[in-house]
Amino acid sequence: MDHADVGIVHPGSMGAQVAAQAVAAGARVRWSAQGRSAATRERAERSGLAAVGSMAELTARCGLVLSVCPPAAALDVARQVAATGFDGVYVDANAVAPRRMEQIARVLEAAGATVVDGGITGPPPRTAGTTRLYLSGDAPTVESVRTVFDGTLLTPVVLPGPLGRASALKLSFAAYNKISHALAAEACALAEDHGVLDDLLDLAAHLLPGTPLAEPQHLATAGPRAWRWEPEMREIAGSWRDSGLPGTFADAAAHTFGRWEDHKDDPDVPHRRLIADLLEERPEASD
């Protein structure tokens, strides 16, 4: 299939950079501007994307559609695309559970589309070697998607096997990587409550260099992204339970990230503000 015209739903901070890599590789990338914010429009323009008026127009003009959105919206986006009768290739590159990936596939395949499971690891691709797009599903279709990004700043990696493998790998990595930020924040909040936060940071720098606990500037990066990380933790919790594992770590991390929802996309929130947010709700002392 000719993927010269690629659609992106929706060009957020990650999606816009992913789409920009397809543009750099020679694809015409389109997006639906209907109902989107001025900030999204500006990102799309900077990334070289062409606007269309509606989802129906997007799917009519593109043989390949990429979904890069918050995990809580992934199934709804798939339903919107399916409702247009899209029968091309749909790549769900969201942080969803394998079971959710199966739901998304059923919705789109009923409309005639071919679905590829995708998982993005790393930051938005602006530097070579930092960001990967894992792909699984029908081998020939996966290979056709891989070629769209081959040689770009987004490194495509094929995982042989069925839908769900890329999602499982993405969530497994995110579980460790993102829950470590929540754990560091909770540890810092305990230390702050007892007046030893600076001592904890000094100790962590000595014994645990390179970790979120040792480098508060890394901890601060979780605040602006917590609104996306909270639903991702819930996907992880569900996946763990599907595998017979307790999902309590992810449930707790979701609760922690939920305390930071007011800092959505605020790059200037300091780590001490995030720590203070965790201390605002205290249980009443028992007699």
Score class of each variant (00 low, 15 high):
268 D>R: 08
83 A>R: 07
41 R>E: 03
181 H>E: 07
142 V>R: 03
182 A>C: 00
53 G>A: 13
175 A>I: 06
210 G>E: 08
197 L>E: 12
25 A>H: 10
167 S>N: 09
55 M>N: 09
10 H>I: 00
267 P>Q: 03
78 A>C: 13
4 A>Y: 05
254 A>E: 05
227 W>Y: 11
217 Q>C: 00
85 G>Y: 10
101 M>D: 07
210 G>N: 10
8 I>Q: 00
134 Y>N: 09
203 L>T: 14
8 I>V: 09
266 D>C: 08
230 E>W: 00
128 A>N: 06
55 M>S: 04
45 E>S: 02
37 S>M: 03
148 V>D: 02
61 R>H: 01
67 S>W: 06
282 R>A: 14
194 H>Q: 08
143 E>V: 11
47 S>Y: 02
144 S>N: 13
251 D>M: 01
234 R>S: 02
159 L>C: 14
78 A>L: 13
93 A>I: 05
157 V>Q: 12
173 F>R: 01
94 N>S: 12
55 M>D: 04
62 C>W: 06
250 A>G: 04
125 P>R: 13
15 G>A: 03
284 E>Y: 13
137 G>A: 11
29 V>K: 06
126 R>S: 07
93 A>Y: 05
109 E>T: 05
10 H>E: 00
12 G>N: 00
69 C>T: 15
182 A>Y: 01
77 V>D: 12
132 R>V: 15
232 E>Y: 03
231 P>A: 14
16 A>L: 10
148 V>A: 06
129 G>Q: 08
257 F>C: 00
227 W>S: 04
87 D>I: 05
281 E>Q: 14
97 A>L: 13
215 E>K: 04
9 V>G: 00
235 E>Q: 05
9 V>T: 01
268 D>V: 01
23 V>G: 09
198 D>C: 03
10 H>P: 00
30 R>M: 09
44 A>Y: 00
69 C>M: 14
131 T>F: 08
277 D>V: 09
202 D>T: 12
117 D>Y: 13
269 V>Q: 06
162 P>Q: 06
49 L>E: 06
165 R>E: 15
227 W>R: 01
118 G>K: 02
181 H>S: 05
